[in-house]
Amino acid sequence: MKDFEFQTATTVDEAVSLLAARGERAKVLTGGTDLLVQLREGMREADMIVDVKKIDELMQLAYAADKGLTLGAAVPCYRIYGNSEIAAAYPALADSARIIGGWQIQSRASVGGNLCNSSPAADTIPSLIALDAVCHLAGPQGRRTVPVAEFCTAPGKNVLGRGEILATLVFPAPADNSGSAYLRFIPRNEMDIAVAGAGSWVRLNAAGDTIEAARVALAAVAPKPLAATSVSEFLAGRPAVEQTYEEAAELAKNAATPISDKRGTADYRRHLAGVLTRRTLAIAVARARGQQL
C-alpha cells in the first residue's frame, strides 16, 4: 500500500470538490470495511482518501411513519437495526444490516458504502431495490436522483460520475399491510459472502390474502444486483399462498444469469435464487400480516 493524502470533508460541496479534482485517484471513505482491505490488497489504489463521516447530511437517519426514511450514506449498519421503529418499518433493510460481517464490522460499515462498492453479492442492495429506495447523488453538476435498481452497472461499477457522491438513500413511507425480508445463502452460518441472496417486499390487500404489489430482487446471480421484474409483475394480484411463492421461485430461477465460481456453481445459484425467493416471500407476507419474524 502506498502513502496517500487523507482529507476529512465537513460539507457535501467540500467532498465533491476534493473528489472532482482528483478523479479516479481519490476514494470516498465511510466505514472503510471494503476500501481499506482493497487498498491493502492492491485491488485499488488511491492518492487521496476523503472521509465523509463528518458531513451531517451523510450521517442523518430520519424516519417518520408518514414521510418515510432518509438514510445518510455513511450511517453504520448498527444504527439501522438498533432503531426498533426503522427495523419494524423496513424489515428487509434490518435483515441485511444484521448479517454484514460481525458486530465490529456493523459498527463501521454503511449501507451507502455497500451500495457504492457495487458488488453483485452485496447484501443490502436487493433489500434497497425491494423497498424502492432512491439514491440522492451530489456532484460538480449539482444534485440528481437515481433509483437503486438503476444504480449498479457491472461488478464494482455504478453510475457515479467524476466527483459525484451518494449523499442519502430515501425510502417511501411503509404502506399498510406491507412486509419485506432478505435472506442470503452461505455455506457457513456467519462471516461469509452470499452464494445467492433475495430480497422481497409485498403489499397485501386489507384481508391479507392477496398480494396487491410486490418487488423481488436477487443478489449474486447476475453481474449486478438484479431487480427481478418478471417475478414482481407476476405476483401482483396473486393469492398469498405457498403455491404462488413456488411459481414465483420458478420465475426467479429464469431471471437469474449466474456464473460458476469459488462460491458455487451456476446451476446451484439458479436453484438458490428460487429457494430464497420462495422463502423471503413467505416471510414478507407473514410480516405484512403483522407476524413478528
Binding site: 455455506p187 457457513r188 452460518n189 456467519e190 462471516m191 461469509d192 459472502i193 469459488k262 462460491r263
Partner: peptide, 14 residues
C-alpha cells in the same frame, strides 16, 4: 480463494 473469507474453515457458529 486465498483468504479466510472464501477458504471456508468452520467458525464457532458452525
Amino acid at each position: 480463494n486465498a483468504s479466510y473469507l472464501d477458504y471456508r474453515m468452520p467458525t464457532s457458529l458452525d
